[in-house]
Computed example of a mutant assay.
Amino acid sequence: MLISKVSEKYDLSQDTLRYYERIGLIPRVNRNKSGIRDYTEEDCRWVEFIKCMRGVGLPIEMLIEYVGLFQQGDETVGPRKELLIEQRKQLVTRMDEMKTVLERLNDKIATYDQSIRRVEHTLN
C-alpha cells in the first residue's frame, strides 16, 4: 500500500509516517522498484499500534525501545511485557487523575446550571 493510502487510512500525515520510520518507531518499510514506500499488512499493523499508543500519550522513547526489543526477537518478550506493564500503570494513574478533574468540572457545570435556573426563575 502506498504511503498516501496509509496516510489516509490512519489519518496521519505522510511526513509523520516518514518520521516514525526514520526514528525507528515503525520498522523499515520496503520500497517498490521505483523506490516508493510499499506498506505491507504487517507495516500497517505497526502504524495502527503506534498511532493507538501515541493517541493515549505513551512516550515516543518508550515505543522506540519497544520496537527495538521486538526486532531483537523472542528473547526480549519479558522486557517488552515489562515496558507495557509500566506504561499501563502510568496510564491508569493518568485516567484516575482525569476522572477526578472530570468530576470537578461536572460539579462546576452543575453549579452554573443552578445559577442559570435561579436567574431565569427570577426573570420570569
Results as ranks from 00 to 15, higher is better:
residue 95 M to P: 00
residue 122 T to K: 12
residue 80 R to E: 01
residue 85 I to A: 11
residue 94 R to W: 08
residue 65 E to G: 06
residue 1 M to P: 03
residue 118 R to C: 03
residue 13 S to P: 00
residue 9 K to W: 05
residue 60 I to T: 12
residue 102 L to M: 13
residue 40 T to L: 10
residue 77 V to L: 13
residue 74 D to G: 03
residue 82 E to K: 12
residue 63 L to E: 00
residue 14 Q to G: 10
residue 14 Q to M: 14
residue 106 N to S: 13
residue 54 R to W: 08
residue 24 G to P: 02
residue 118 R to K: 12
residue 103 E to M: 04
residue 124 N to H: 06
residue 114 Q to E: 11
residue 85 I to E: 14
residue 17 L to E: 02
residue 104 R to Y: 02
residue 63 L to G: 00
residue 10 Y to F: 15
residue 95 M to N: 03
residue 117 R to A: 02
residue 45 R to W: 04
residue 2 L to Y: 12
residue 81 K to W: 08
residue 114 Q to K: 04
residue 114 Q to R: 11
residue 16 T to N: 14
residue 89 K to N: 07
residue 32 N to P: 02
residue 54 R to D: 07
residue 1 M to V: 13
residue 6 V to T: 01
residue 10 Y to N: 06
residue 95 M to T: 07
residue 82 E to W: 08
residue 20 Y to C: 07
residue 5 K to I: 14
residue 123 L to I: 14
residue 44 C to M: 14
residue 116 I to Q: 01
residue 58 L to G: 01
residue 60 I to W: 04
residue 124 N to T: 11
residue 40 T to Q: 07
residue 64 I to P: 01
residue 74 D to H: 09
residue 41 E to H: 09
residue 101 V to R: 10
residue 81 K to V: 12
residue 122 T to V: 06
residue 31 R to D: 02
residue 50 I to W: 02
residue 17 L to G: 00
residue 50 I to M: 10
residue 85 I to H: 11
residue 87 Q to R: 07
residue 45 R to H: 10
residue 3 I to V: 10
residue 4 S to F: 04
residue 50 I to R: 05
residue 18 R to A: 09
residue 81 K to A: 13
residue 26 I to F: 03
residue 16 T to P: 01
residue 49 F to M: 13
residue 31 R to A: 01
residue 15 D to I: 13
residue 35 G to C: 08
residue 42 E to P: 01
residue 88 R to A: 06
